[in-house]
Computed example of a mutant assay.
Amino acid sequence: MTDTALILGGTRFIGRHTVEEFLDAGYEVTVFNRGNHENPFADHDDVAHFEGDRTEEGKLRLAAERVDPDVVIDCVAYHPKDVRVATDVFADVDAYVYISSGASYGAERVPKREDETPLCECTAEQATDDSAESYGPRKAEGDRAVFAAAEDGVNAMAVRPPVVYGPHDYTERFDYWVDRVDNHDEVVVPGDGTNLWHLVYAGDVASGLRVVAEEGEAGEAYNVGDGHAPTRGEWVDLLADALDTEVEVAYAGPNELAAADLELTDFPLYREYPHLLETAKIRRLGWEPTPHDETLAATVEEHRESDRTGRENGPSREAEERVLGVLETL
């Protein structure tokens, strides 16, 4: 008998890759969402669609009854209440996996480890907030909801990715860098190029979700991340290789950036303190990350086919050229 997977979300970025991962693994898949975005699986006979708002408990219970899933992957739980309700509604499934975040860690450590690094605290106000500032606390509280559900006998687990990149990335944070390298001979990189922000390929998040659903332990959280964590300067070089081009990297510190009224943090994916997740725990389940030559080939190909540029996520080219002009005088 074929296993069934219910994907809460499932038509945009991580959810889209997750649907494909479970289909490839032989599951029958149902996507649960509001239908507000184009469904890439609308013509796919093996993907059913259940329309509803995941914040409405009645809709979730109806989906649980009609779909009767073996596995539930929760791509769109952004508030702790979402997780508490879902783990109650789907208490009897074989596996409920919540997509948490590396942002749930509340202490700066290198690397961040699931069973050692403290999580963010979450106030009552943060738990119902929608701001970027409360994202990490909300995700951490969702983790604690998973742990509590597991103590009550639910086979609930969490997967913590850092920033995700890959095909269909509507955030366009990574697209900014692909666009820069693809269209210009010289690119400004903030700082000295050693800034480190661990990323993870979307397809590897999806495979991690499946592996955790099949092999993970209730009440556990698992980090996922690329096998190698390049510095910002390395990412530009890797992209140049993937785009089959050459690019000169111009490193600019705070003084040079000030000439264009820019700061280091104006560039997407810049983080002052290194962010690195330990992934040994999920690897012990049999999960392996995809090499960068493969992840970037797929990312670049889809980027060029899309209309995304990411340019609004970072400095304008005009501002970048002002910085380049300053650097040339030094």
Rank of each mutant, 00 (worst) to 15 (best):
V224D: 01
W287D: 01
Y251V: 04
R210P: 03
G253R: 08
A242F: 01
A242N: 03
A259G: 14
I282F: 09
E246N: 13
D226H: 04
P254F: 04
E217L: 07
H228I: 12
E214H: 05
A229W: 04
I282V: 15
A252H: 01
E246A: 09
E248D: 15
A258S: 15
A206F: 01
P289S: 11
T245G: 05
L238G: 00
Y222C: 08
P268A: 13
V249C: 00
V236D: 11
P268T: 13
H275P: 03
V224Y: 06
A280P: 02
L257A: 07
T231W: 01
E234V: 04
L277T: 11
D261A: 11
V211E: 00
N255Y: 12
P254V: 00
V211S: 03
V205P: 07
A280N: 14
G225K: 01
L269K: 06
G203Q: 09
G225Y: 00
D237H: 11
Y251G: 04
W235T: 10
T265K: 12
A280H: 13
R271N: 14
N223C: 11
V249T: 14
R210Q: 00
E248F: 07
G227P: 04
Y270T: 09
G286C: 11
D237M: 01
V247H: 00
D237A: 12
D244L: 05
R271D: 12
E263P: 06
L238D: 11
P230D: 05
D204H: 07
W235R: 01
R232F: 07
Y273H: 15
I282Q: 05
T290E: 14
D204S: 07
G233D: 08
D204P: 10
S207H: 09
A258D: 15
Y222S: 00
L269Q: 13
D244Q: 12
G219D: 04
Y251D: 07
H275S: 09
A213H: 02
Y270R: 01
F267Q: 08
A213E: 08
Y251R: 10
P274S: 10
E214Q: 12
P254H: 03
P230Q: 09
N255T: 15
P274E: 06
L285R: 05
H228G: 05
G203I: 01
R271W: 00
L243A: 02
A221K: 05
P268K: 08
E215M: 09
R232C: 03
Y222G: 06
E217F: 02
V247R: 03
R210C: 01
R283M: 12
A250G: 06
D244S: 14
R232Q: 12
P268L: 11
L239D: 05
A206Y: 08
D266A: 11
E288P: 12
Y270I: 03
A260E: 02
P268Q: 09
L276I: 15
E234G: 01
L264A: 02
V205N: 06
D241V: 07
A229T: 14
T290D: 12
E215R: 15
D204V: 03
A221C: 04
P230A: 10
D237F: 02
A250L: 08
P289V: 13
V211G: 02
D261H: 10
L209R: 01
E263Q: 13
V211Y: 00
R271F: 04
S207F: 00
R232P: 05
Y222R: 05
E263M: 09
N255Q: 14
P291C: 05
E263D: 14
P274Q: 08
A242M: 10
V249Q: 07
V236G: 03
Y270S: 07
L209N: 02
E214G: 06
R283L: 00
K281V: 00
